[in-house]
Write a protein that binds this DNA or RNA. Structure first.
Lengths: 317, 317
DNA sequence: TTGTAAGCGTTATCAA
DNA sequence: TTGATAACGCTTACAA
């Protein structure tokens, strides 16, 4: 049970050449049934596993993709990562994880370093606005190096980047309609950043809502909501941490308001009261991201699939 | 801005040999100031980055570690992953993410595949009981292949595996003491599995508590707590999802009980009411894990550092 | 201080 | 259907 049998060891044991062993692994059809079996036996007997570096060195492929997330400690990104990892494995990819900590400087660092990191492609899953010129430069460099790039939402004016097609407007639209059905006509829309790539779209879906830029974190939201006037009869909130902040502030003030969250994660259903949501489940987004990178890496023409939001009513509304 | 300048290109441009270029990168001291600069200029001019496969092929090192988590969609594992990724990067490692979905079969798959995946080491971060013989076998095989292995809690009787040294008993101990201070003497201890590697230790720290095995998920807990007798005056709960389940069941039954959670994640502070916790922050655990794998990979003798739980009082108690 | 040359384990190109 | 042989880009003895 030592280790590290090479292709040559297998070849010798099976009485064939390295080429043949390689074929058994990569193009089994071009090999006679007889040798095929002999080689496979030898391989398992020696517990042979191809060296991924030698393979990568020759073939230029690594079968690894990078996943860049804004903040992996957030349940949304956790669920997304889970879906990405699962879908990636189904397609034979490993996933390298990078956490950006919501910092564009950090993103730039990672982008600059990624080409030498040995990945075939990357998924940029952040809702932060990253459309600066220095990031565009870094992205272009990755593109030049042949990396496949997929973003979770249209971020750049850069050619060659594919984005998941999520109609975020739908999220707020569905929420507004549901609220209206119950006579709630004066909702406040709480956003991290109304000019961000997602924020813009959420606003577009709820033209009649009053928009508040409150920042992305729990703490950010608390103070704003405390100051919220009594003009509103409901809250539409971009993320779960923000919704928790709102809930906390409301409770502290002895108030209560119907809430819909534009992010669907397991936790939304588990808090008390459980949050109603209107969003695309991260599982779907993750799978679609992997489908897209895989296609780009394999140079298979493909068109992004449109992802649709669903309204899930629970206790908060 | 094409791409893929090789070491030879740099060498030519700088008028030196490949060896010298390699030295500039790996042992800059053994190179004259003059050539050093010339080479560096050439390198940046050509936008050179060493091919990690060629490097790995020669050196046998990949500078990548694998992180195996029980369920990355859980905030605890998200926070842990965040810390691991950050600490790993500081030490020059990339992190490949594997999600086990709490399945031992899946763990075994991953373990069997990991040696050929090109990683220097791995961190097994699951609280599930994984001490089966087939998993031991797989682990031993990884060890044979020279992989460094670190677990989050003592799991195996296998030599060569290092574990983070967390005194989980402390978690429940601190909780019991705090409760007692307020006259709460009959707490129930809600565990995922009292025979699991962590469950055992949590029980040890609270010998006077009544232990309930309720499963790890939100839904599991809900039903049990609904049936909970009125003999208890407080709840100590292993994880946050479980605590949410308990809270939900209690609320639904119109009851209320002081709760302490043995898991410290950002979310614990954000729900309403905010949970008091008694645990080691995942950030610390993550950093320690990386410190340990790094040491093993570098063959640096090291002893695990003891990690201590902290009691953080918030609103739930 | 620098260079020469021999690999590392695989796959791709030819020929047989 | 198979096999020699030449890369892939880098590091590392060993020489100079």
């Amino acid at each position: 049970m030592e280790s590290n049998a090479t292709i040559l060891d297998v070849a010798r044991r099976a009485g064939v050449s390295r080429t043949t062993v390689s074929r058994v692994l990569n193009e089994p059809d071009r090999v006679s049934k007889d040798t095929l079996q002999r080689v496979q036996e030898a391989a398992t007997a020696l517990n042979y596993s191809p060296n991924s570096f030698a393979r990568g060195l020759r073939s230029g492929r690594t079968d690894v993709i990078a996943l860049l997330v804004g903040d992996i400690s957030q349940p949304f990104h956790g669920s997304l990562a889970q879906a990405v990892v699962e879908a990636a494995e189904e397609r034979g990819f490993g996933v390298m994880l990078y956490d950006l900590g919501h910092s564009t400087a950090r993103l730039e660092d990672v982008l600059r370093k990624l080409p030498r990191q040995g990945v075939d492609g990357m998924i940029i899953a952040t809702a932060d606005d990253i459309s600066t010129s220095s990031i565009s430069d870094a992205v272009n460099e990755c593109l030049d190096q042949g990396l496949a790039i997929v973003t979770g939402v249209e971020q750049f004016e850069v050619d060659g980047i594919t984005s998941v097609l999520t109609d975020y407007r739908e999220g707020t639209q569905l929420a507004m309609e549901a609220l209206a059905t119950e006579g709630l006509q004066r909702p406040a829309l709480l956003l991290g950043d109304r000019n961000g790539p997602i924020g813009k779209r959420l606003v577009a879906g709820a033209p009649h809502a009053t928009v508040y830029d409150v920042g992305y974190t729990f703490d950010d939201v608390e103070s704003v909501v405390q100051a919220l006037t009594h003009d509103h009869d409901a809250l539409i909130v971009a993320t779960l941490p923000m919704a928790l902040g709102a809930m906390s502030a409301l409770t502290r003030a002895g108030r209560s308001l119907p809430i819909i969250v534009c992010e669907e994660v397991p936790f939304a259903a588990q808090v008390t009261p459980a949050f109603s949501t209107s969003a695309v489940p991260p599982q779907e987004t993750g799978r679609e991201m992997v489908r897209l990178v895989d296609a780009i890496i394999g140079s298979i023409p493909i068109e992004p699939r449109a992802l649709h939001a669903t309204l899930t009513r629970r206790e908060s509304f």
